[in-house]
């Protein structure tokens, strides 16, 4: 009985010692070493099977990457088709939102009215807000309008750095010409909303 249990202890200690070097990958791997050790302990019994499984996983991974590339290519072509079909350049208007300036504030929502009709209302997640603060630009609306001037109203809701709620609305005129119209709504802190024509 004692011998059986000792064998178990010896086995555990052997694999604990042999595995760490391979299992450690980063800080997180310090934590997941256990799982890997357990798996390796089992698979070590049959190295041929283990190699086969690894080859199979690698082969599948490559095929998954290939299909990802195929689907991305389809998505790009569909983007072009969609734009041509749904938003021809003659009538296309796209409205973007970006954040500028050093003032820290939490953006909760942005609502956009074009020609008196609400065309977008977006509630921001933490990740989206972070992406805006890093310099990303969000396309909040894309649609079609006739050439000429169009009233644009932007309403912004959020919290200041001090935690106070704020709500701000600004009205602009957007002149649509022959080509696609790209309008960037720039939120500079909690107080300033400006519009940039592209």
């Amino acid at each position: 009985m004692n011998k059986v249990l000792k064998v178990i202890v010896v086995a555990i200690s052997v694999f604990l010692l042999t595995l760490p070097a391979y299992a450690e990958t980063a800080k997180e791997q310090g934590a997941q070493q256990t799982a890997k050790a357990e798996v390796k302990k089992e698979t070590a019994k049959d190295p041929v099977k283990q190699d086969l499984a690894k080859e199979q996983i690698k082969g599948l991974d490559e095929q998954v990457q290939e299909i990802k590339a195929d689907v991305l290519s389809i998505a790009t072509q569909l983007n072009r088709l969609e734009e041509k079909l749904l938003y021809p350049s003659d009538t296309q208007i796209a409205i973007f939102v970006s954040v500028a300036g050093a003032e820290k504030f939490r953006l909760d929502a942005v609502a956009v009215e074009l020609d008196g009709k609400q065309v977008a209302h977006h509630l921001y997640t933490y990740k989206e807000l972070e992406a805006l603060q890093k310099g990303g630009v969000q396309r909040i609306h894309v649609g079609n309008v006739m050439t000429g001037e169009h009233p644009l109203q932007v309403k912004v809701m959020g919290k200041t750095e001090g935690g106070a709620d704020f709500q701000r609305a600004e009205s602009f005129k957007v002149a649509k010409g022959i080509g696609p119209k790209l309008v960037e709504v720039v939120l500079t802190g909690s107080k300033t909303i400006t519009v940039k024509d592209w």
């Binding site: 998505a75 072009r80 992406a131 990303g136 790209l182």
Partner: peptide, 28 residues
């Protein structure tokens, strides 16, 4: 500074780990 608003849009997706959308936008 940003000169192309669609490039900014690709970054917006990338910053959120939305790799598919970011690659697709930038590829377009």
């Amino acid at each position: 500074g940003l000169n192309d608003v669609y490039f900014g849009e690709a970054l917006y997706h990338a910053y959120q780990g939305e790799w598919f959308e970011s690659i697709c936008r930038l590829d377009t």
